[in-house]
């Protein structure tokens, strides 16, 4: 297992290097003079020259890259132009909000999509199979910000079940003491069930929005790989040996069918992290996505760069975890490593 971990870590390194190079290049292709840009519109030529030296823009490109990497290694992502706050601290404090939302959406999607895909494959041609196909085709055509708005309209305005789409917690509640940064877990640790309920109410609709988005690829993949496994010879043998349907489907077929689904999760995460930005905008969710969107509107550059880098590193780590999960599920992948 350690050997597997080592080899997988080694494959993540080139991705990380690529990510750092691309984000560096993105900071250097700003149209016009970067120093003048950071100095603001009212700056004198002298102030611009000062900033150029301060930012190290008068050095050669490789030297600038070295500076950039060493700043990164110290966790320095620059400071926001509008608030003056360091980007790294801001992102670190907002990350739990985004992570809680994304994970809630993903878990919900898995809980619905996997059983749905299995049933659709086992009962091929039934109404549930047709429903699965319609939902997966429609699901990929839905703009996630649009689904979010529709759900707000139905559950907040029409039915009144959901609270107003304004962040993680109603103004009447105070945030639970920070342990994990996840309000749901923190409020349980603090045994504050009122806050837990309020946080859950705020989280429900955005998480459902993300889940609807992530559901389609997972259900489609589960169905397809279950179908492939169910028609294989070892399943036929298991059936012929007289095992119960439950044992055949869950113990034999499901574990094997999970492999392609786990692989698909990499793509699902790519979509989810992007969709997260849009959902945060719709629900005024105080995560790193809305931080980046606010910065984009005011042309504040450092937060956007920090956000892109943070998301990319997160995505590389998630892919690494998926690879490791693959090794745990499939002994063959372990021995190959």
């Amino acid at each position: 297992m350690l050997k597997l971990l080592g080899s997988r870590l080694a494959t993540a390194v080139p991705s990380l290097i690529g990510v750092v190079i691309v984000t560096f290049l993105l900071t250097r292709v700003l149209p016009g003079d970067t120093a003048a840009y950071f100095a603001g519109p009212a700056a004198t030529p002298q102030a611009i020259a000062e900033i150029r030296t301060k930012l190290g823009l008068d050095k050669s490109l490789p030297a600038q890259f070295a500076d950039y990497v060493s700043a990164l290694a110290h966790g320095d992502l620059g400071s926001s132009l509008s608030t003056g706050q360091p980007v790294a601290t801001e992102i670190a404090s907002r990350l739990p909000a985004s992570a809680e939302l994304t994970l809630a959406g993903l878990v919900l999607a898995l809980l619905i999509a996997v059983p749905f895909g299995i049933i659709a494959a086992v009962r091929q041609g039934s109404w549930i199979d047709h429903a699965c196909r319609i939902i997966t085709t429609a699901g990929v055509s839905l703009p996630v910000f649009f689904t979010g708005l529709l759900l707000v309209y139905v559950f907040y305005f029409k039915l009144g079940w959901a609270p107003a789409p304004l962040g993680r917690l109603d103004v009447f509640f105070s945030a639970p003491e920070t342990v994990t940064g996840f309000y749901l877990i923190d409020s349980l640790i603090a045994r504050d069930f009122e806050t837990f309920r309020a946080a859950l109410a705020q989280l429900a609709v955005p998480a459902i929005t993300l889940a609807i988005f992530a559901l389609a690829p997972i259900a489609r993949m589960t169905r397809a790989s279950m179908l492939a496994v169910l028609s294989s010879e070892f399943v036929r043998t298991a059936k012929a040996a007289g095992l119960t349907d439950y044992t055949v489907i869950i113990t034999y077929a499901f574990r094997n069918a999970m492999l392609p689904v786990v692989t698909t999760l990499g793509m699902v995460f790519s979509f989810l992290l992007g969709a997260n930005v849009l959902v945060e905008k719709v629900f005024a969710w105080p995560g790193i996505g809305s931080y980046a969107v606010e910065a984009l509107i005011t042309s504040d550059y450092a937060p956007v760069q920090g956000f892109v880098l943070a998301m990319a590193i997160l995505y590389v780590i998630l892919n690494l975890l998926i690879d490791l999960a693959y090794g745990i599920i499939d002994p063959r992948a372990r021995s190959e490593a």
Partner: peptide, 9 residues
């Protein structure tokens, strides 16, 4: 290696 929408942003 990037989440694609984030890279586009």
């Amino acid at each position: 290696a990037f989440p694609l929408f984030v890279l586009a942003m």
